[in-house]
């Protein structure tokens, strides 16, 4: 007969309580975090070079126009690559499916934000995250399309190119504001950041912020 802990003497360690849940829960796999990191790096490079091409003071400071244009174009063209590679991951596809659709509690979340109420129900992703994901994906595609029209000048008639420049410029401004909002949310939500960095979040935090998520 094997001895159980505690039976050999008073100095033995007490038996741990059997059914206690771990305090950390899994939120993102390594593949998902890699997709996020690669997308974030490309986006930051793309936005930084855009600023150096566009803001006169920065353009005068940096110069090197050909290099800056090259970095801007290639980071922009490669921006969808991490997403497409990520589709190989089942966890990433599952999260996309969650991000893509509004459920009844997402509508409740939007109403709560509008009425400045504190109870804001959410699944694994809240409605704000879903809106951000959809909008930024659409905006990035428009930037890619208009950017290609501006790059390959022989593709389309002049009127298209002028229009593409117009849309590219104004949408860049809007995206700058929205991406700044995304960074602000990350900055003010440390546990979300931990989740994206380590893949795990605090169970109590998850229950609080994402009550409908059953990890």
């Amino acid at each position: 007969m094997t001895s159980t802990p505690g039976s050999a003497g008073p100095t033995d360690a007490p038996t741990p309580r059997p059914s206690e849940l771990p305090t950390r829960v899994r939120r993102f796999t390594r593949a998902e975090r890699l997709v996020h990191r690669a997308t974030a790096t490309l986006t930051l490079l793309c936005v930084a070079t855009a600023a150096c091409l566009y803001v006169p003071a920065l353009a005068e400071l940096v110069g090197r126009r050909h290099l800056v244009v090259t970095v801007h174009i290639w980071t922009g063209v490669l921006l969808p690559a991490p997403y497409l590679l990520g589709l190989a991951s089942r966890a990433f596809r599952a999260d996309l499916a969650l991000l893509a659709r509004f459920t009844s509690y997402d509508k409740e979340w939007v109403r709560a934000v509008r009425q400045r109420r504190f109870h804001r129900p959410a699944g694994k992703f809240n409605a704000g995250q879903k809106l951000y994901a959809g909008w930024i994906a659409g905006a990035a595609l428009v930037m890619l399309g208009t950017g290609l029209l501006m790059w390959f000048t022989h593709l389309a008639p002049l009127a298209w190119r002028t229009g593409a420049t117009f849309v590219h410029d104004w949408l860049a401004l809007a995206m700058g504001v929205v991406i700044a909002g995304h960074l602000w949310m990350a900055l003010t939500h440390p546990e979300s950041r931990v989740g994206m960095r380590t893949g795990e979040v605090d169970r109590a935090w998850a229950k609080d912020e994402h009550p409908h998520w059953k990890p």
Binding site: L99, A100, R101, F102, D106, K130, L131, A133, G134, W135, A137, G138, A139, L141, V142, G145, T146, L149, W160, G163, A164, F166, V167, W170, L171
Partner: peptide
């Protein structure tokens, strides 16, 4: 399908803008 609507909406807006 909010994401689909947002993506298609942005594409439509972009084309209209051009």
């Amino acid at each position: 399908p909010v994401a689909r609507r947002l993506v298609l909406g942005m594409l439509g807006l972009g084309a209209a803008g051009v």
